[in-house]
Amino acid sequence: MSVKALRQAVDSLLPSLSPVRFVTPDGRPVKPPPGYEAPSDESLREAYRRMVLGRRFDTQATALTKQGRLAVYPSSRGQEACQIAGVLALRDQDWLFPTYRDSVALVSRGIDPLEVLTLLRGGWHCGYDPAATRVAPQCTPLATQTIHAVGMADALRRRDEDGVAMAFIGDGGTSEGDFHEALNYAAVLKAPVVFFIQNNRYAISVPLARQSAAPALAYKGVGYGVPSEQVDGNDLVAVLSVLLAAVEHARSGKGPFLVEAHTYRMEAHTNADDPTRYRDRREVEEWESADPLSRLETYLRSRSLLTEEDIEAAKEEAETFAAQLRTGMNADIEVDPMELFDHVFAEPTPQLLEQRAQLAAESLFQKD
């Protein structure tokens, strides 16, 4: 390969020098870099509706945690543009591999919110059917879902299915070995997978500067031969545009793509966290001024794509949605101790059968 060809090959992998942006924090349109097209007006209106719904769901889930109805809830307030755009960029036949913070994405995918919260409520490891929804179980261990996504993407490729896998991951997860193994594996196999980093600046309490010395996390794809891009993660128009391009890249047989979205987690890591110990309130206020929901609303209103009636209708739908969630969560769970033995082995071992019989006998005795 000539030096010129090598230079072109390397350049094709590099992200933009600054995050791709279509809309400023105060809602004004700006000219994006070459190669990106604005999503359709219809998709942006739908994105707004889903963001309002997702924001209300997140607020309600946080309240349910304080009421003791959820064991834990990792809020994603401030990251809705990423989660909604990620879902809208996929088709029904595509697979989503979420983390524990991506409940809003699952709700936007159409999964019953009660099933979404089953894990966080402590009912089951997963409350929905992954095969039916094409959404993998929410992953708590960091970065393990990236390897799962590559495996699924390779399976789709081998079966000649027109499907793509998208793996959500946080900035902290990019420091895990599984993430790097997944990038290498995907590139070698040319698997149709998109790695979507939601860089919210903190891995629990560890700031980005203590995690990586790279100029941006998007550059982590270059060493594995994976083309990458970085985008303003609070600009839904830009995130959706970049992800649509990334998904099309993967679907067309060109292999994996890495996208880093620069965003921010407004709330605590979880209800067990005290963010005041590691970040300043002024920093939070600065990011609140770039709120993704108000930014999109201002932008759509400036283009006469959103009316007061549309805004009120979205809010009413969200309140109805929240009320239904409260009603469902207030119903007590019927616990069956025998479920402990379900789905452990395809063929139960003699020891497991013995333990099951022992518990069955004790349970029967207690009932009597």
Score class of each variant (00 low, 15 high):
residue 247 V to A: 03
residue 348 P to I: 07
residue 309 E to S: 13
residue 252 S to D: 11
residue 322 A to I: 08
residue 263 T to Y: 03
residue 322 A to N: 12
residue 332 D to L: 15
residue 282 R to W: 03
residue 325 L to K: 10
residue 319 E to L: 05
residue 360 A to K: 04
residue 288 E to T: 05
residue 328 G to N: 12
residue 248 E to C: 00
residue 307 T to V: 10
residue 261 A to P: 02
residue 356 R to P: 14
residue 356 R to M: 15
residue 327 T to C: 09
residue 314 A to W: 08
residue 300 L to Y: 12
residue 338 M to D: 15
residue 257 F to Q: 03
residue 352 L to R: 06
residue 273 D to Q: 00
residue 267 E to T: 05
residue 283 E to N: 00
residue 246 A to F: 10
residue 341 F to D: 13
residue 299 Y to Q: 01
residue 325 L to R: 11
residue 246 A to H: 10
residue 277 R to V: 07
residue 335 V to L: 14
residue 312 E to T: 08
residue 314 A to P: 10
residue 315 K to D: 08
residue 352 L to S: 11
residue 258 L to N: 03
residue 278 Y to Q: 09
residue 269 H to L: 04
residue 245 A to Y: 03
residue 328 G to E: 13
residue 346 A to S: 14
residue 302 S to Y: 01
residue 336 D to A: 10
residue 356 R to K: 14
residue 334 E to T: 13
residue 265 R to N: 06
residue 358 Q to G: 00
residue 255 G to S: 03
residue 262 H to F: 02
residue 277 R to E: 08
residue 327 T to I: 12
residue 347 E to P: 13
residue 273 D to I: 00
residue 340 L to C: 08
residue 289 S to I: 10
residue 328 G to V: 09
residue 321 F to R: 11
residue 259 V to R: 00
residue 343 H to R: 13
residue 319 E to R: 10
residue 268 A to Q: 01
residue 249 H to W: 11
residue 345 F to K: 05
residue 341 F to K: 02
residue 295 R to Y: 06
residue 288 E to N: 11
residue 296 L to D: 11
residue 257 F to V: 05
residue 333 I to E: 15
residue 344 V to G: 13
residue 257 F to G: 02
residue 320 T to L: 12
residue 347 E to D: 15
residue 307 T to P: 09
residue 354 E to K: 10
residue 345 F to D: 14
residue 357 A to N: 09
residue 337 P to K: 04
residue 279 R to I: 04
residue 290 A to P: 02
residue 250 A to Q: 02
residue 250 A to C: 03
residue 271 N to P: 04
residue 273 D to R: 00
residue 300 L to I: 10
residue 290 A to D: 06
residue 346 A to R: 12
residue 294 S to D: 10
residue 309 E to P: 07
residue 278 Y to E: 05
residue 295 R to N: 04
residue 291 D to R: 00
residue 267 E to C: 02
residue 317 E to R: 07
residue 251 R to C: 08
residue 284 V to D: 08
residue 303 R to E: 05
residue 300 L to V: 12
residue 292 P to C: 07
residue 309 E to F: 07
residue 299 Y to M: 02
residue 290 A to I: 01
residue 253 G to N: 01
residue 267 E to V: 01
residue 331 A to S: 15
residue 290 A to C: 03
residue 349 T to S: 15
residue 279 R to H: 04
residue 252 S to N: 08
residue 333 I to A: 14
residue 292 P to M: 02
residue 314 A to F: 07
residue 283 E to L: 03
residue 319 E to P: 04
residue 352 L to A: 10
residue 344 V to C: 12
residue 283 E to C: 00
residue 345 F to I: 09
residue 269 H to C: 06
residue 356 R to F: 10
residue 330 N to C: 13
residue 277 R to D: 08
residue 275 P to Y: 01
residue 356 R to G: 14
residue 265 R to Y: 04
residue 319 E to C: 03
residue 309 E to N: 12
residue 318 A to L: 08
residue 315 K to F: 02
residue 257 F to L: 03
residue 347 E to A: 12
residue 314 A to M: 08
residue 312 E to A: 11
residue 301 R to C: 08
residue 343 H to F: 15
residue 335 V to H: 14
residue 285 E to C: 01
residue 286 E to K: 00
residue 339 E to M: 10
residue 350 P to K: 11
residue 305 L to Y: 10
residue 353 L to H: 05
residue 316 E to M: 09
residue 310 D to Y: 01
residue 346 A to N: 13
residue 301 R to W: 07
residue 346 A to D: 15
residue 258 L to H: 01
